[in-house]
Amino acid sequence: MWDYTDKVLDHFRNPRNVGIVPDADGVGEVGSLACGDALKLTFKLGRDKRITDVKFKTFGCASAIASSSALTEIIKGMTLEEAGKVTNQDIANYLGGLPEQKMHCSVMGREALEVAIANYKTGTTAKKILAGKVICTCFGVTEEEIERVVRDNNLTTVEQVTNYCKAGGGCGGCKDDIEQIIQRVRKELDAKLAAAQKPAKLTVLQKVKLIEETLDREIRPMLKRDGGDVELIDVSGNRVIVSFRGMCAGCQAAPITMKDVVEAKLKEFVSADLTVEEEKS
């Protein structure tokens, strides 16, 4: 049996707010019989523009039912703006956590809520439509959705992505694509983090450390794919002296392109005043 919390079991055994709100203001339907779980969420707004009535119908396992029930309890009384900020993590937290392999149940809740809000605001279809490039054809998961779960839940592996949105859980043919999406999003997240941490005034030691970190994260993986590497030789004021190794050392393109790329990255992540020079051997 799954390691469900008492709260999950309680919401499964005694689901709150089951049904369909008559004359609903917003309707959201996600999932299908083929996928193994599906959720229909309906809500009605009061005069104060808060959600006064919300109901769900769910086809799925114990945690899918519990997640849907939890979602309705969370958003009852909220404005749509507040409800729009509810994440799948909020649903999981409300239930005292979900087994990792069941996190997709919480994501289904968040998706249904989004569709229902969009349905109210724009009058668009109450069914989830696949917008953008479909990565996982088995479960119909788009690039955008995968990016979203990686971002929202700070995911790092394909297995986690499968647990959170099912992508990759069928034939497995899209696992490489998912890996690439994770890499891309992680890079964005890491870069944002690095940029946020960039101090106003750097000591020499901080500057050298930050330069090394940036080379490690932004430059070396790129060079290593082609069998090359870069070494930091010296930092003198705002002059950064580097040397290219391996395949990069004799590369004709190195003086123009690599130096520029390294300089651009160091300007972005360390200091705009830096210039890069290549050490000539």
Partner: peptide, 30 residues
């Protein structure tokens, strides 16, 4: 129109042990 894991948990609640070929009970997604 209903899912196997949910059936098994309800059965277990009344003291009955059975099994299912549903996705959720296998720990996989299919």
């Amino acid at each position: 129109y209903i899912e196997g894991e949910a059936i098994l948990y309800h059965l277990s609640d009344i003291g009955v042990g059975a099994s299912s070929g549903s996705a959720c009970t296998s720990g996989s997604l299919e």
